[in-house]
Design a protein around this nucleic acid. Structure first.
Lengths: 220, 220
DNA sequence: CTAATGGTTCGGCCCAAACCGAAGCGTCCA
DNA sequence: TGGACGCTTCGGTTTGGGCCGAACCATTAG
């Protein structure tokens, strides 16, 4: 009898849209910081902080402090399995799907995720970099990749010396696939922006493609 | 962006204590009426009616009218699996642990999970079927397995034609290992029940072993 | 040291939804 | 045909909690 409310407690934690987006983002298996989760969930840092506290209290995530950063990850595979079970229900009988959601097509096409590209364009960039051999499947730069990044003015060795990981896979909530995050993801974004190949729409997370020809040529 | 992953919608449905109690009651696999569910959840009929409408709208339960009665059941095994996954999280890290009531040991030993065996016996069945070669490690029936299932009156080809997957691994929340679900899991349960090898304890999810000799002999 | 950055806490606003009483439908039986 | 029964719908109240602005700690950089 008492187990009813207990599963309700856990389900309630997953049931908030912002928290569900956080947990979905954490499904990639990588630890994320509180700020990154806030961006991923589309809420402010202080709101995210409260959500994280509740998730931690409920045992769904665990946190680790490293300096002034708090890294958050799913607390175990059982949590991931539960989320997958929920996704399966959604998939099997979802009359109102999120994938072709007509809400904000531009957001789904290209947006900024913290400091790197996300959306369909972000996923495409990620896949293409691996496809043309600039990155290996586990996101390590290859010699040709180093040359190509250097041609964009990106100093890979300097990025590698930074504390931040060079490359990280970030799960895209609209595409449900990974895009490129980390120092290189951020560097590529600014490189594209400096060349006016892309531009941020001020006040939103939306990213516009200004020079598709140059962008796609670089991806050949 | 506002409408993130739909898993939040499903989780919210499970996240209300009254609805969680209803769903837990339905885990036994029997259809219940709206009034019975109201008693089970400890709320009035009209409140229960609203909850049932929401659960039906969300696709978690299906209803059937028979005269002036409305019978409600879980809409599928995927819902039961999700609930079991949630129970496993609760079981593993629940702060307010459910009192180890008198029913607990029997529940852990053998219980029904929607329509198939769970608990220690369920896990044992799963492992044994693989061990004696009736199923492969990825849960495909072998020729000797087909013969053995046929001897129990189970029509595997008919089950394979059904929409439901024939064999499915379902994570057991008390054993933390997988037991056998899917069409075959359900068919085995009814076959054992028909032969009076096992019996359900009415009003609960507990399953009693009535003829252990016959049951274990079949598993040789 | 000060400044910048990551994270948390506090206070107040606001809304979704859970709840019940009462009334409204159907369905079944005498 | 009237009445009992099962269930749903409607109104109105209440509350939990999600959200943000602002202020507050902690760590690192300069």
């Amino acid at each position: 009898m008492a187990d009813g409310p207990d599963i309700a407690r856990i389900a309630t934690l997953i049931g908030d849209p912002a928290r569900a987006r956080m947990l979905t983002a954490l499904m990639a298996g990588h630890a994320l910081t509180a700020s990154e989760l806030a961006v991923e969930a589309g809420i402010t840092r202080q709101t995210a902080s409260g959500h994280i506290a509740r998730l931690r209290e409920g045992g769904l995530v665990s946190t680790a402090r490293q300096g002034r950063h708090h890294y958050i990850r799913l607390s175990g595979s059982d949590v991931a399995e539960t989320l997958e079970a929920l996704m399966e229900i959604v998939d099997r009988r979802g009359p109102t799907r999120t994938r072709p959601g007509p809400k904000e097509p531009e957001m789904r096409h290209a947006r900024i995720c913290y400091d790197h590209l996300a959306g369909a364009l972000g996923v495409q960039l990620h896949d293409r970099l691996i496809e043309i051999g600039h990155l290996t499947a586990d996101l390590t730069p290859t010699p040709p990749g180093l040359t190509a990044f250097d041609a964009l003015g990106i100093d890979i060795p300097a990025l590698q010396r930074a504390r931040r990981p060079l490359c990280r896979a970030c799960l895209d909530w609209s595409e449900r696939r990974t895009h490129l995050a980390g120092g290189l993801g951020a560097a590529l974004f600014t490189a594209f922006e400096d060349r006016a190949w892309i531009r941020r729409v001020s006040g939103t997370r939306i990213v516009e493609i200004r020079n598709p020809a140059a962008l796609y040529e670089w991806l050949l």
